[in-house]
Write a protein that binds this DNA or RNA. Structure first.
Length: 778
DNA sequence: GAATGGTGTCATCAC
DNA sequence: CAGTGATGACACCAT
């Protein structure tokens, strides 16, 4: 019962302090439960720094006079924080510069493989007139990670609904319905993309028209694209617009696309693609696809449907980011993002063997997604929910060389290409959420963190500057909290040595070695023995205070209420003017003990000086003087028990004197204890304040990282999608006609090759591979 | 004159 | 059981 009460009171106190500091509900426990037990214990647990820790016991048991009592808990706490930060660093996405080398296979019976034309695949994106949309992102975003409030807002807002920036679920559903309807007409889902609707209506309309007019996507639409694909997005090389019409052109197109892949896909050579062939098309919305084709190589990137995401949380994230960015967190996001150890799974180079034999008719060249700009914009959040297992190889993320990326994809950031437009006349709305995501686990974890930290970060009114100032102030005066050398024991010990100490033996008392000065005029530090005084100012204060009554000059540091000379001079009964805490003492005793005769006040300057000295004396000193105690209060209070008893034995003291001496000693020690307690309390508050600040900073950083990751993922999806379209659209059958996306699909093989297979077969294979990860989970 | 913070003191608890 | 530290509560004072 007692412990329960204590726990409640302490926990509530901790919580109250936090609340008072930040002015907002702080869901610390949620976050700490699984993340930071030591901190939680500090804040809420019985070992809280603010609880009634028996420090003296710690000292006694641990021989801990060299260790500050608080340092014990704080050491654990900061250690825990440090470890936590290290652990957190592990889940930061390491986006290496990876590349994928894939071979596209054109199942052309004639097996014509050729092609050497430079790719204009990036031009596909640029041709769609999306530069307007993506231009700002590419150029500006990377350099504006700190200020991109609107960008973050955009990104966060886009997380909730699939792709679209601010679409509600109803909107998405409606779009899906309409899209499915239009699919029959050959219209791609791209046209429903929010960003496309916003800024790319013309282009999309053109594409859609092309798709509608022809059942096969690469028909006129592809031609229209080809006409516009004049500039290589990576090299800036210009190409003559051409209309694919034969196998040669098909091969060329494939080569171009592969080169695009090579230039853009960060898949490394060590990519562990699924052994079985997986269909790329599964990533592309297809109505014929079964839901949840998870083993798809590109599915995580291409899935058009997103699992429902908590809009409110995203909004909170946004708000939190905005607030956190206002704090000017120093840690650069880029620094955080890409500082993973080389062993990081995500940093593994996922590249397929470039020389992998081509199945059937191959018109492939190495293609790699060498880099993806960081200026990724909105993209679907479902990737976050996708598991890491078995799919980490599928999603190499943005490499660290963002600059090159930006140059590469400066004009390729297509907000709408995430959904294949006319490429696939089919849709797969259900496959998305179930698709595995190599980043899912990490993102989920980060999401949990930020969910927990949300309340902390959303809070307002917490001034980090002030907090830091307080922190500095606190640190400068942290003899209590952290630095064991500033512990009361050490302090008192040093002071005791400086003053003519008569005792050096005892180490069990906080004031053991304090001054035993026999001279009343010596400026020994009586109250200087009080624990918390590490800074000079405080120390001076304490020393001056300790010298009260013994120093001829008045100390301006006197903090006692009755130490005002002006008031004291006209108030003979000092004991009654000032605090009268002698509750247990009879007034008569006080009078007899403390009252100097009024007549003595009317004497010469020496007596005035004596009065002045009297005014400096504490009440107990007055009492001691009145009772003719033969030794100083300092000795009474600070001497160790043994020496104290020895001192008492040297004198024949009356019972009243002994009682007064014991009271003086008790009060003196309690006074120091109270001062220590108050200072400790203050330190605890300051520490909590600093903790709140740190948590806010961490949350802001995590949120920024999240935004960056989301951008990267979305951009990757867009690029893969565009590349898929580019490749598929340039494929031609033996008759020079484009393949129907509803009948054929590109598919990655385990050896890195890319095959053009019938969609039905691709679906079966994809379905087959889908079961494997699920079985593994079980 | 009320509010607030600092200080000393007491009571109490735990060790 | 005494001694001691820690701390809540209270009173008092100064600002």
């Amino acid at each position: 019962m007692l412990s329960l009460k204590k726990y409640l009171t302490e926990g509530l106190l901790q919580f109250t302090i936090l609340l008072s500091l930040i002015g907002v509900r702080v869901d610390v426990d949620t976050y700490l439960t699984s993340q930071l037990p030591p901190l939680r214990e500090i804040i809420l647990g019985p070992s809280s720094a603010y609880t009634q820790t028996q420090f003296h016991n710690l000292r006694n048991t641990l021989d801990g006079y060299g260790i500050h009592p608080k340092s014990i808990d704080l050491d654990n706490y900061f250690t825990a924080r440090r470890l936590l930060s290290q652990v957190r660093a592990l889940d930061r996405f390491q986006v290496p510069t990876t590349e994928v080398n894939a071979w596209l296979v054109h199942r052309d019976p004639e097996g014509s493989v050729s092609g050497s034309q430079p790719s204009s695949g990036l031009a596909l994106e640029s041709s769609s007139g999306l530069q307007d949309v993506t231009g700002p992102d590419n150029g500006v975003r990377e350099s504006e990670t700190e200020q991109g409030f609107s960008e973050d807002l955009e990104d966060l807002g886009a997380v909730a609904p699939p792709v679209s920036g601010d679409l509600t679920k109803e909107d998405i559903d409606l779009i899906d319905i309409l899209w499915r309807q239009d699919i029959d007409l050959g219209a791609g889902r791209e046209i429903f993309d929010y960003s496309h609707r916003q800024k790319e209506q013309d282009v999309d309309k053109e594409l859609r028209d092309g798709a509608e007019q022809e059942d096969t996507w690469p028909g006129e639409g592809a031609e229209a694209l080809a006409r516009n694909l004049l500039v290589d997005g990576e090299t800036g090389e210009s190409f003559p617009a051409q209309v694919p019409g034969g196998e040669d052109q098909t091969a060329l197109s494939l080569e171009e696309c592969l080169r695009l892949l090579e230039a853009t896909c960060p898949f490394g050579e060590n990519a562990e693609f699924p052994a079985d062939i997986s269909s790329i098309t599964e990533a592309v919305p297809s109505e014929s696809e079964p839901p949840g084709l998870q083993n798809n190589l590109l599915s995580p990137l291409l899935t058009g449907t997103e699992s429902p995401f908590d809009l409110e949380q995203q909004w909170q994230d946004l708000m939190s980011i905005m607030e956190m960015q206002a704090m000017e967190v120093n840690t650069s996001t880029s620094e955080i993002l890409y500082d993973a150890p080389p062993g990081d799974p995500l940093s593994t180079n996922y590249s397929l063997a470039p020389n992998t034999p081509i199945n059937q008719n191959v018109s492939l060249h190495q293609a790699s997604l060498g880099g993806c700009s960081q200026d990724f914009s909105l993209f679907s959040p479902e990737v976050e929910s996708l598991p890491v297992a078995g799919s980490s190889t599928l999603l190499p993320l943005v490499p660290s060389n963002s600059t090159s990326l930006n140059s590469t994809f400066g004009s390729t950031n297509l907000a709408g290409l995430f959904f294949p437009p006319q490429l696939n006349g089919t849709a797969n709305d259900t496959a998305g959420p179930e698709l595995p995501d190599p980043l899912g686990g990490l993102l989920d974890e980060a999401m949990l963190d930020e969910i927990s930290l949300m309340d902390l970060a959303i809070e307002e009114g917490f001034n980090p500057v002030q907090a830091s100032q307080l922190e500095e102030e606190f640190d400068s005066d942290s003899g209590l909290s952290l630095d064991s050398s500033h512990s009361p024991s050490s302090l008192s010990s040093s002071e005791g040595s400086s003053s003519s100490s008569s005792s050096s033996s005892s180490s069990s008392s906080s004031s053991s070695s304090s001054s035993a000065s026999s001279s009343a005029s010596s400026s020994f530090s009586e109250e200087g023995a009080v624990g918390y005084s590490s800074d000079s100012e405080t120390l001076d204060l304490e020393e001056a205070e300790g010298a009260v009554g013994y120093q001829p000059e008045y100390s301006k540091f006197c903090r006692m209420s009755y130490q005002d000379p002006a008031q004291l001079s006209c108030l003979p009964y000092l004991e009654h003017v000032g605090h009268n805490h002698t509750y247990n003492m009879a007034p008569s005793a006080l009078d007899s003990a403390d009252l100097p005769p009024p007549s003595t006040l009317k004497k010469g300057s020496k007596e005035k000086q004596a009065d002045f000295l009297d005014k400096q004396m504490s009440r107990d000193e007055h009492r001691a003087r009145a009772m003719k105690i033969p030794f100083t209060n300092d000795k009474i209070i600070n001497l160790p028990v043994e020496e104290f008893n020895e001192l008492l034995s040297k004198y024949q003291l009356s019972e009243a004197q002994l009682s007064l001496i014991r009271d003086i000693r008790r009060r003196g020690k309690n006074k120091m204890a109270a001062q220590n307690c108050r200072k400790r309390k203050l330190d605890t508050i300051l520490n909590l304040e600093r903790d709140v600040e740190d948590l806010q900073r961490d949350k802001a950083r995590l949120l920024r990282e999240k935004v960056e990751f989301l951008r990267s993922l979305r951009q990757m999806k867009q690029k893969v999608q565009s590349l898929y379209q580019e490749v598929f659209g340039r494929l031609r059958d033996e008759n020079g006609r484009p393949y129907s996306p509803s009948q054929y699909a590109l598919q990655y093989a385990g050896d890195g090759s890319v095959l053009l297979i019938p969609r039905t077969l691709a679906d079966q294979q994809a379905r087959r591979q889908e079961r494997k990860p699920k079985d593994r989970r079980k």
